[in-house]
Design a protein around this nucleic acid. Structure first.
Lengths: 76, 76
DNA sequence: ACTTAACGTAAAGTAAACTTTACATTTAAA
DNA sequence: TTTAAATGTAAAGTTTACTTTACGTTAAGT
């Protein structure tokens, strides 16, 4: 199971950013090369991104994958 | 585009390991919960793992995802 | 209050990750 | 040198990430 901090991180950037339109769901989606639906589903946790997308996201936020996504063993 | 060091890492473990059967394609596949085909395709670079699988792999090798997988912009 | 940008939902379709099966080749040990 | 384990290949099927479309809700400015 994968847990992510996408929603929190994006909303934080929205508030902090001068060019806030860059951090709307649509703005981020465009820069990542995916649709807004994909952002929504990831923020909801409906599905997990591919590794490629995870790398792109990490790059956009200037963080490591492990700082944004956390893997939790199913058992726990 | 994603480049990985899977084949090298696994073969290194094969040589070093006392219980070398743990690091055959089949042994690793079983621990990761995937098939041997999946390992083969990843080592060949035929396709990229999901983020979940990348996390499991990183855990098996005791490394960070970024140490095993490298993202390269298509342009370069 | 009205407008509009941003966010949310749902459902059907496409693409790619991953499985399954089956068989062929390499490698190493007896 | 034969045997078996390990690796490689290929093709068709399933699952899931991701798209597309279309419409409903919320929030914030005027």
């Amino acid at each position: 199971m994968i847990v992510n901090k996408l929603k929190n991180l994006r909303e934080k950037m929205l508030k902090q950013s001068v060019r806030s339109e860059d951090w709307t769901q649509e703005g981020l989606a465009k820069r990542l090369g995916v649709t807004r639906q994909t952002i929504i589903s990831m923020e909801k946790g409906t599905y997990n991104p591919s590794l490629v997308l995870a790398f792109k996201i990490a790059h956009e936020f200037g963080m490591a994958i492990e700082d944004i996504f956390e893997y939790r063993d199913e058992k726990n």
